[in-house]
Design a protein around this nucleic acid. Structure first.
Lengths: 185, 185
DNA sequence: GCCATTCGGAACCAAATAGTACAAATAAAC
DNA sequence: GTTTATTTGTACTATTTGGTTCCGAATGGC
């Protein structure tokens, strides 16, 4: 048998996710990516084929590590108001300039890369379902259709929030906004 | 005296704006950019110094050519409902994958380039003022503060709409959404 | 302990990158 | 028409790009 792999694949992909998330695909060159993943060229190409493939895997990692955690938080939120639950996705990020990897990927690559578009669409949809779940739980809105639409509006607000956050540090009071939009004001 | 310039600067910048808008900064290489601007390397570097400078100028061109036109349309809209005026900025684009240059620049470059961030922030603010103007005109909301906040919410929705449009062709019914958000439903 | 196999890392490569230098073409001023 | 300044386009360059190759080192099965 052969020598065993010395690095942890998941750990490497988390490093890739972080740097792609922060810098984007084209702005991240190989040396930077290798350092972020903690491995050398040889192992990199042996284990992951090429840069694009790692990017796609990094998106998957984001789904597992970040999106799933967000959905859990939405589902397990026991706050009285729906707005307090949803604030989890509108709260100021620890690193605002980083934004949301889904949003970044949508803007940079999705138009020209169907594989990326498929993943970003899938994650966006998962997020939307999580939001709608909160609305259902709190009996927001008059009908199921109403909630579906409101969920989609909130998803759009979320991505707008992420996009604008990369340019301006807006500390707006989203709590109050959400309350009004949800009819809780 | 010297020979006169053969190309039209504005025309060249419009070409630059279009390709940067469609492809982004890093994804647009020099040959492509030169072709889009209709000039050769010599004239390019003589007249515009470097690629980044052209990108900044292209953002200015967007402000002049696209943002200003949008603001005019918002100001001169004579529809009865505010939602009908605002639909101008939520209507499906002729080229959906292109999105909004401001949004693209915010996500790709603003975090690492203060000059870009300043321009995108300024344009976003101008758009917001245009939106708020519509709200004022139609007496939407209870107070001035209320309108300011609602204008900001609509701006965020706009950018979310643009970001998501680059990934999925969502033909959602924004007309109905706007009506509901504006309290016109 | 031997051997097959895979690892890690550095040297290497071709293509593409943004940017420069320079000579020929050109048009206004006199 | 001559002069002169500037444009224009090509040839060139140094660097960076993603990706490959190859060899010594290490490791697990027999």
């Amino acid at each position: 048998m052969a020598r065993t792999r010395e690095f942890d694949t998941t750990r490497a992909l988390i490093g890739a996710m972080e740097i792609f998330w922060r810098q984007g695909f084209k702005a991240t060159n190989l040396p930077e990516l290798l350092q972020a993943m903690g491995l050398t060229r040889g192992s990199f190409y042996k284990a992951f084929r090429d840069k694009e493939n790692v990017y796609l895997k990094a998106l998957d990692e984001y789904d597992i590590a970040v999106v799933a955690k967000t959905l859990d938080a939405l589902k397990n939120c026991n706050a009285l108001l729906a707005s307090d639950c949803l604030m989890q996705i509108f709260k100021p990020s620890t690193n605002p300039k980083q934004g949301c990897f889904i949003c970044n990927a949508m803007v940079e690559l999705a138009p020209d890369n169907p594989l990326v578009a498929a993943k970003t669409n899938a994650m966006a949809n998962r997020l939307k379902l999580g939001i709608i779940g909160v609305l259902e739980k709190h009996k927001i809105g008059k009908s199921k259709e109403h909630r579906l639409e409101l969920g989609d509006v909130l998803l759009h607000l979320y991505f707008g929030h992420q996009a604008m956050g990369k340019s301006c540090v807006d500390q707006s009071n989203w709590q109050a906004r959400l309350k009004r939009i949800l009819g809780e004001a």
